[in-house]
Design a protein around this nucleic acid. Structure first.
Lengths: 343, 343
DNA sequence: CCCTATCTTTTACGCGCGCAAAATTTTAAT
DNA sequence: ATTAAAATTTTGCGCGCGTAAAAGATAGGG
């Protein structure tokens, strides 16, 4: 492949018998040069293996091919999965995704946005913390870069939002639970970090009322991201105190449900919809491990793939038209009921 | 904070009453300028919020502050956790970690190493696939950059390796299981992707022989990274066929164990060490969710923190001495037995 | 107070490439 | 063939900063 190392584009262009700026054009868009020149370049590209200096490329460029992807916590499989899809979608589109993890810390979200600034990203995909995000910082970032939010919405920030229709998805679950057994109560963490948590609670209330049942919400204390532990400890406390007024518990998300399943197991309670079961537990998100809980968790699957693809295409649409969208769009995808054994 | 935006270092230096190169020195090492000048710079840094252009900084620099971190699969909580710690350790040391995910695809590991090349990283921390890694590519990379391997070892590649002492950890588990009940058989995937899997099998055999038991290994087919599914389907098949010659199963890793727990639950088998239990299942890695399985999983905890910190300090040691180590070092940390209810 | 040794700052140059405008070639129409 | 229009390539310049060498400032000893 490589004979002697090429120092720079100048040298490579000379060896290819073409001027440097033309080679530069080629690298920015192979289609933009004549087919015959492209052939010549690709020919010597095989012989000399040269690749442009990233820093020199980006340093004097209006807009780079970098796409920032900021997620609140990669330790949460949900974000690890959706971040993964977004990353791959960017690569497919010929961009360089830069995945930044805020490690569960809103302050680091700011840091990440700041780091991104100096990378001159063509655009940024942000799954914000929501309420705990620094609104001003995100707003300011929105002014300076094409920004698309996903997963969690923040009003009036970002050119677009893509996520799941919590209202639809929760209603789907409530309907199923009511139809197949006792009406569910709702289990969540009091200080909800995430805007989705609020939407889900409201959706639960509305759906219950529509079905003629009285909503019943159980909120527990808990800080941080260790939802399983909160679900297990606080959920277990409620279970053993027989605090629930129904045998059916809808958890705000799968990680809480996983914790509660664990607590129920520890208490010797039999979870499921079959005969002889003590209670039903359902979740939301179709967490990668919810298929393997005991019993397997009935939940709502978010359409990761669709959300990731739409978020990316929404962003790239802006980039190609080279203009901010006239009006902010909000796209939500429907959740899918995944019936397993737990409810 | 910011009044008028600063365009470049020239402008900022002028506003600070100092020459540009001195400011440049400051940014590369604040200690390298006189205290009085440092004060002046930091003073106007507050007033004008300027930050150097990353691309211009790195473009003409011998060595950057970038540290590449390459992991095989962020969807696996193990790597997401250890990657996280490595990232934070780099930040603490004043470097810029760049976390690259190979998405379970060895070919993408190469791509990632190639991308890193053009970022001129000061050093790279790599958790390689192992056997399926492109040995030549990793070797070539090793020639050009300071490279430290972690989690999975590859002989003669990288300046150092940091991981867990599988021999010690598996022996610890075997010993515990033998002492507290029937001797374990060993459950794993036939085409092991990971060097650690081989080490663990060998450690199991050796430990069993030392304890005067005959080792018994069950290998199942399975491709890819969905270990829980493999554990559940194949493990379930073996369980229902009563193929195991002992009531104690040691799984090569927690994700397999989680799958097998799920299968056992589905078969109505009672897992645990208490009276009336049908079998014992143990894992390895202390997966974040192993605390919440049903029953909670007895396993070996790897010392994530120590591994991450040592890998980073090993690398930074090389960077500071500005020389390759004369001899490759291999550091392993001991695993810790985590006794829960499953075994 | 002067002079030297040491530490800091400045001068001067170049890195590798993007980009706008000018020059050239190709294409298409007459 | 001729020529204007379109597509492509080349010329020329500058981006923002690192870095070596030169100039200057500082401190300590006599």
């Amino acid at each position: 492949m490589s004979h002697s190392k090429i120092r720079n584009m100048e040298e490579f262009a000379a060896l290819s018998g073409i001027s440097r700026p033309t080679v530069s054009k080629y690298f920015n868009d192979p289609e933009s040069v004549r087919a015959s020149t492209r052939a010549k370049i690709e020919e010597s590209l095989k012989k000399y293996d040269y690749q442009p200096n990233v820093f020199a490329m980006n340093q004097n460029r209006r807009t780079t091919k970098n796409i920032g992807v900021v997620v609140p916590n990669l330790a949460d499989p949900f974000f690890s999965e959706i971040g993964r899809r977004v990353e791959l979608a960017c690569i497919d589109a010929g961009y360089s995704p830069i995945l930044l993890n805020s490690h569960g810390n809103p302050a680091m979200e700011q840091d990440n946005l700041n780091s991104l600034r100096s990378l001159k990203p063509a655009g940024v995909l942000l799954a914000p913390f929501g309420r705990t995000s620094d609104l001003d910082a995100v707003h300011a970032f929105d002014e300076d870069f094409p920004l698309v939010l996903f997963d969690a919405n923040m009003s009036d920030v970002g050119q677009a939002f893509v996520g799941t229709d919590n209202s639809q998805s929760v209603n789907l679950m409530v309907e199923y639970l009511c139809r197949s057994g006792e009406a569910p109560c709702f289990f969540e963490i009091k200080s909800a970090l995430n805007p989705n948590a609020n939407k889900r609670r409201l959706a639960y209330i509305e759906s219950m009322e529509r079905h003629g049942h009285e909503p019943r919400i159980f909120q527990v204390d808990g800080e941080g991201w260790n939802f399983e532990e909160i679900g297990s400890i606080e959920g277990g406390r409620l279970l053993s105190a027989k605090a629930f007024n129904t045998n059916t518990i809808l958890c705000s998300n799968d990680r809480l449900a996983i914790g509660m399943l664990s607590a129920a197991y520890g208490l010797g309670l039999r979870v499921g919809h079959g005969a002889g079961c003590d209670l039903r537990i359902a979740g939301h998100d179709d967490h990668p491990f919810s298929r393997f809980t005991c019993p397997p968790l009935t939940t709502i699957a978010q359409d990761y793939e669709a959300i990731a693809n739409r978020a990316v295409s929404e962003l790239f649409g802006m980039l190609e038209n080279n203009e901010r969208l006239s009006n902010r769009t909000e796209t939500t995808f429907e959740g899918r009921l995944i019936m397993r054994d737990s409810a």
